[in-house]
């Protein structure tokens, strides 16, 4: 199974409609399940805004926005992961590992420290700015007349470690030990509503579409900087554009969800195992799988130990790690 034509049993392009279908099913499940369980008919009625008013309220005000936020966050992080793994040619790269989200944590905690009791809605812009700032710091630290993939990855790891240390130090030395700071650091989608959907979807759409357009760059990047340059790619300019896209995708996601590790790391690999290295397939597939994984994980986080919710970041790790290992064993 390791060699030749057996290696990719479904043709790579066929994985995209399948993943889209899976995403729709998972989203329907996310709308149906919860403290009040809705049957398929009630879900459909709710979505079409007819029938039982309670079901309509549950679907439109509580579950659908949360499912949509989850889908956007998952897609953003997975796409950012594919971009960063492509730029660094490093399978261990993701927005979390490379420090693209660490600035978000520092910024969020700084806001909570300076103005305790700040509502989450006001933390989001700070987190977004913090994330972009840390991404810019990684890029600037890696720059020395050009960017080498290795230096970029190392600068990212350093910024990530610095951000984490700073967050931890502030929390540990502070009396203002707020629940919201902790929940931001753990990541989660508790009580996300339409305002969060509106805040996020333009980024998912714009940066997501832009990311899909970079597929051929990423394919050529896989051959090394020199070969890419020799084929006519303006390597530094392309890399800066890819880094900026990854920063926008990450920043907009973590501003809404807090720091979610794992999705950006594992989903690109899962997509790669299913569909190979061609980024024209890999990018859309990773976006769909990332969205599906996060919606599924969040549904589980809400339902499994109801009425208590567990942070979705823990669930993505608990579901994702074994699923990923199973894929590795059967496909690689």
């Amino acid at each position: 199974m390791a060699i030749g034509t057996l290696r990719r049993r479904p043709p790579p392009a066929a994985t995209i409609p399948i993943a889209a279908l899976v995403l729709l099913l998972v989203m329907a499940l996310g709308v149906a399940l919860g403290s009040v369980r809705l049957g398929p008919a009630a879900v459909l009625d709710g979505l079409l805004d007819r029938g039982d008013p309670t079901a309509r309220l549950i679907v439109w005000q509580l579950r659908l926005p949360r499912v949509l936020v989850g889908a956007c966050v998952g897609a953003n992080l997975a796409l950012a992961g594919v971009l960063l793994q492509g730029i660094t040619r490093n399978p261990l790269a993701d927005p979390h590992v490379l420090g693209f989200s660490s600035g978000a944590g520092v910024a969020a905690i700084a806001v909570l420290l300076l103005a305790p009791g700040t509502p989450l809605a006001l933390i989001a812009p700070a987190a977004f700015a913090g994330s972009l700032a840390s991404a810019a710091a990684v890029y600037a630290l890696a720059w020395r007349g050009g960017i080498s993939a290795v230096r970029f990855a190392l600068a990212g790891v350093a910024v990530a470690a610095f951000g984490t240390a700073l967050s931890t130090a502030v929390i540990a030395s502070s009396d203002l030990f707020t629940q919201s700071a902790l929940s931001f650091l753990a990541g989660g989608l508790f009580a996300r509503d339409w305002s969060h959907v509106h805040q996020l979807w333009p980024y998912t759409l714009a940066a997501g579409v832009a990311a899909l357009l970079t597929a051929r760059w990423l394919n050529v990047f896989a051959l090394g900087d020199d070969v890419a340059r020799g084929l006519g790619v303006r390597v530094e300019r392309a890399r800066l554009a890819l880094v900026a896209l990854a920063a926008l995708l990450t920043g907009s996601a973590v501003a809404v969800s807090g720091l979610l590790a794992f999705v950006g790391l594992v989903v690109p690999h899962a997509a790669r195992l299913l569909a190979g290295n061609d980024h024209r397939t890999l990018l859309p597939l990773a976006a769909l799988l990332g969205a599906a994984l996060l919606v599924l994980a969040d549904t589980f986080a809400r339902v499994a130990f109801a009425p208590t919710e567990i942070p979705v970041g823990i669930v993505t790790a608990v579901i994702g790690a074994p699923a990923f290992l199973a894929l590795l064993r059967t496909r690689a």
Binding site: R7, A222, L223, G224, D226, V227, G230, G276
Partner: peptide, 11 residues
């Protein structure tokens, strides 16, 4: 241009 010892994904 073909650099010395170029690398590409093994698959």
């Amino acid at each position: 241009f073909l650099p010395q010892a170029p690398e590409a994904p093994a698959d």
